[in-house]
């Protein structure tokens, strides 16, 4: 391998000098007497190939003329219109891959978002996805512009907070109860504000909206009373506080 590398280097280094007359085959071989037997035939062969290269060169003007011909052929085969040009830049495989991967990513994202939304919807305070649930509720509210719809949404969220409270008691997760009560109170206050906006926007809609909220709050009180009767004594105070919060809402309605 070493000899081969050395001979290759000698050939590369001295072939141009032999070509321009600075060296001769003999003068190069004399410089490397230890490998003369191996070098001489290979150098002779390389010199013959170098001369052959000139004999195999293109005829004068061929490259220039054929370039024009090639460019004309390409011009003729060029796709017309911007769509064709875009398709020319990428292969069919490339397009199939791009479209398929985009569709896959969209489907995957939809699946992930859907699963997250579903998990978040079933979560209760203390769950990792509970913040997502509140965020999704806020997002839904942000895109609800009709006062009646907003009022209904607040009522639905108020029912959600009560259900969460019940679930926390049933799960024995009492540490979360004060925060859950605060959230229930906030939701009832928000429902009352939403009801005021309904009254301002549409007087006729006030009556059914008020009745709806009253019905919702009455149900919540009933639910909490039943819960109070079936729960341990230690959690009675927290449930009582929640009942008072809902009752305050009923009072405010009256």
């Amino acid at each position: 391998m070493r000899t081969e590398r050395q001979i290759e280097k000698i050939i590369n280094d001295y072939l141009p000098s032999i070509g321009n007359g600075q060296e001769t085959l003999e003068s190069v071989v004399e410089k490397f007497p230890e490998m003369a037997n191996e070098l001489r035939p290979r150098l002779e062969a390389a010199l013959w190939l170098r001369d052959a290269r000139f004999a195999l060169a293109t005829r004068p003007g061929y490259i220039h003329d054929s370039r024009k011909y090639l460019e004309t052929k390409i011009e003729e085969s060029q796709p017309k219109g911007w769509l064709g040009k875009i398709f020319r830049q990428h292969t069919a495989q490339h397009w199939v891959f791009n479209i398929a991967s985009t569709v896959m990513i969209i489907l995957l994202l939809a699946l992930v978002i859907n699963s997250t939304a579903l998990t978040a919807r079933l979560s209760i305070p203390g769950d990792p996805f509970y913040t997502t649930k509140l965020f999704l509720e806020d997002a839904r509210l942000a895109f609800t512009f009709d006062p009646v719809d907003r009022s209904n949404l607040h009522m639905e969220y108020s029912r959600q907070r009560t259900s969460e409270f019940v679930e926390l008691v049933l799960d024995g997760d009492y540490d979360q109860l004060p925060a859950a009560t605060t959230r229930l109170e906030s939701e009832i206050i928000a429902s009352l504000h939403a009801l005021n906006r309904v009254t301002l926007a549409d007087g006729a809609a006030k009556q059914p909206a008020t009745a709806g909220l009253q019905h919702t709050l009455s149900n919540e009180i009933s639910m909490l009373r039943i819960l109070q009767q079936s729960s341990p004594q230690g959690v009675n105070a927290e449930i009582e506080l929640a009942i008072q919060v809902v009752q305050a809402g009923v009072m405010a309605l009256r």
């Binding site: 293109t58 490259i63 060029q78």
Partner: peptide, 30 residues
């Protein structure tokens, strides 16, 4: 690749002589 055939023409001028010699060394006629 953006469709500029003159750029491809320049590539042709650079590489066509070597390709031609490679082919001509193995073909019967020019």
């Amino acid at each position: 690749q953006r469709g500029d055939q003159h750029a491809f023409g320049d590539l042709y001028v650079i590489h066509a002589p070597a390709i031609f010699r490679y082919l001509f060394a193995q073909l019967e006629n020019c």
